[in-house]
């Protein structure tokens, strides 16, 4: 079943067209990877999925994005972002304790009970595979953690508001190989409960963790299919050239 659908989507930053007639289905409980060279529109696309582009001046969007069959434009933006969470390239924990980082979202959404918040923090940190490392340091500042730990805090923070879809924009590009491996393993586990969309420059990462891959070029999707098929028998010459490193 498709959790999200992108239909005939055009996106302009002023006069520049960043996305050109994008059509894409994002299946539920699967990991969809967006790949493509810098400036191809993949980050713009992922941000469009929870309306992060709304804030950008001069950004105009045509076409539609559906979440469970309903246009995201018709949803309240806070509700949308609660349902479609996001993790960014650079870990960006808030300058507060580990606990408060995770509790921030639920508190914003009105959860006040200490016991409930404790539960959420524990479950989120467990789901983000970092509970064992941090359970004794919940009151310490999140800024003192390693990059890999900070990124998992950000994932836990996104999970704390129980989203349905998790968007990840190059979540491991700033991390060392061990932290990267932990995040990849984590993402593979999370797909049981969440639908995940990940932008990555690391093609081996796309091969390792994703079920679906979409290749963006000049704002268009050149090819989209199951990852196994995509990296074994790409249908389009441009895809073949890109993934085999013979692009341009």
């Amino acid at each position: 079943m498709d959790k999200m659908m992108v239909k005939n989507l055009d996106l302009y930053y002023g006069d520049f067209q960043a996305l050109d007639d994008v059509n894409l289905a994002i299946p539920e409980n699967q990991i969809t990877a967006f790949i493509g060279p810098s400036g191809c529109g993949k980050s713009t696309m992922i941000k469009t999925l929870n309306r992060m582009n709304d804030l950008i001046e001069g950004c105009k969007i045509e076409g539609e994005v559906l979440l469970d069959g309903k246009s995201i434009q018709e949803l309240d933006v806070n509700t949308l972002r609660k349902r479609v969470g996001m993790v960014f390239q650079k870990p960006n924990p808030f300058p507060m304790s580990v606990y408060d980082n995770i509790a921030y979202g639920p508190r914003t959404h009105g959860v006040r009970s200490k016991a409930k918040l404790d539960d959420i923090v524990e479950k989120s940190l467990m789901d983000a595979a970092i509970w064992d490392e941090l359970k004794d340091r919940l009151k310490k500042s999140a800024l003192g953690l390693s990059g890999g730990q900070q990124q998992r805090i950000c994932i836990a923070r996104a999970l704390a508001i129980q989203p349905e879809v998790l968007l990840m924009d190059e979540p491991t590009s700033a991390l060392d190989p061990i932290s990267t491996a932990k995040i990849e393993e984590l993402v593979s586990t999370l797909k049981k409960e969440y639908t995940i969309v990940i932008v990555t420059h690391n093609m081996q990462q796309a091969v390792r963790i994703s079920d679906q891959t979409a290749f963006f070029l000049h704002g268009q999707i050149v090819e989209h299919g199951t990852t196994a098929q995509f990296f074994s028998i790409p249908q389009d010459k441009r895809t073949e050239d890109y993934i085999t490193g013979r692009f341009g």
Partner: peptide, 9 residues
Amino acid sequence: QQPVAKDLR
């Protein structure tokens, strides 16, 4: 080289 697609084949 971690080949993919045609190269891997």
